[in-house]
């Protein structure tokens, strides 16, 4: 059984899955638009949450948040289900596929055989779509891969029941009802308001305040942790910002692309200027990653000690804050 499925490679898995699912159901949508309407842009530095002993830094909202917001804001009907029993979870998947319905799933990446070995960590918030089954193999549209892939049933079952932080518990979801046409404008306004609000939230660890806080911490890492651990912390930060799935610059470029599309939908040319500025902010984040990576390699040049890195971060935070304030005033 196999349903034709419009696979497109995207930068980020969750926004890619929802964009591809909507496109399949006759509502063509780009990844950037899904990311934007899902209010994907965020920043959080949460040192009390440790991953492999390193503090968590996130450039996006909580897993599942993009999907939930897109479907809610656009009035799309979804069916979601978690499971305790892998056999039941796979049987349910088969029954949907038998009816020709593509199914989105949350999985871990560690057990996925088609993943390049260098990216196999115990990361559990990956998303993909199954759109068919051939014998014992599932046909998978994994949005971070160029082409659809094939995954054996036993491997998929393992990935769906991966353990650890954010365990997927066999979570699967599919679209059950779609409106005749999408009314994007109100959803775009609402999502931009939401992003501006969460990025300027009055908590020290998140949003632009969080970036400033991280800069202050980063400055003190060498003294507090010693050079070796400071470099591990820094490398981890760069991974969260740039590793596959971010589209570059810690999701800032995807959001800039969303602002371009939003400008067309809302007929608001000022959004184009803000998109350009968001691109510039993304470029600043990239510069930070370049300088940071040189540190990790022990090749830091003139003007690139941790104090300088912190200054670069503060600049990212300031530019982003100013931009988001203007953005908020545009959609009020």
């Amino acid at each position: 059984m196999q349903t034709p499925f419009p696979h497109r490679q995207t930068a980020h898995c969750e926004s890619g899955v929802i964009a591809n699912l909507l496109t399949h159901h006759g509502l063509p949508m780009s990844e950037a638009m899904a990311f934007g309407i899902g209010g994907g842009l965020f920043f959080g530095y949460l040192p009390f949450i440790r991953i492999n002993g390193l503090p968590l830094t996130t450039f996006r909202t909580t897993p599942g948040g993009i999907f939930n917001r897109v479907t809610k804001r656009l009035g799309i009907g979804v069916a979601c289900k978690n499971f305790k029993n892998p056999d039941q979870a796979m049987a349910e998947l088969d029954s949907y596929l038998g009816r020709g319905v593509p199914v989105g799933m949350q999985t871990g990446v560690y057990w996925l055989p088609y993943f390049p070995p260098a990216l196999r960590f115990h990361f559990n918030a990956h998303n993909m779509i199954a759109f068919g089954k051939k014998g014992d193999d599932y046909l998978i549209s994994d949005p971070v891969f160029p082409e659809p892939v094939v995954c054996a049933a036993s491997d998929l079952a393992r990935a769906r029941f991966a353990q650890g932080a954010l365990a997927p518990k066999g979570r699967m979801y599919c679209i059950t009802a779609v409106p005749k046409a999408l009314d994007l404008a109100p959803a775009i306004r609402q999502s931009i308001r939401g992003v501006c609000r969460s990025m300027s939230a009055p908590f020290p660890l998140i949003g632009t305040r969080g970036i400033r806080f991280l800069a202050g911490q980063l400055e003190r890492w060498p003294a507090r942790l010693g050079d070796r651990r400071a470099i591990l912390y820094l490398g981890n930060l760069i991974r969260m910002q740039e590793e596959i799935g971010t589209g570059g610059g810690g999701f800032r470029f995807i959001f800039a692309a969303f602002l371009q599309e939003a400008a067309d939908v809302l007929g608001e040319s000022r959004l184009l200027d803000l998109s350009q500025r968001m691109t510039a902010v993304g470029d600043l984040w990239r510069e930070f990653a370049v300088a940071g990576a040189r540190h990790c390699k022990g090749r830091a040049g003139e003007g690139e000690d941790f104090g300088d890195l912190a200054r670069m971060l503060r600049r990212c935070g300031e530019e982003e804050g100013a931009l988001l304030r203007e953005l908020a005033s545009l959609v009020r």
Binding site: L232, I238, E242, A293
Partner: peptide, 8 residues
């Protein structure tokens, strides 16, 4: 830079 961080 992402490669360096990953290999680290």
């Amino acid at each position: 830079p992402a490669n360096i961080a990953n290999l680290q």
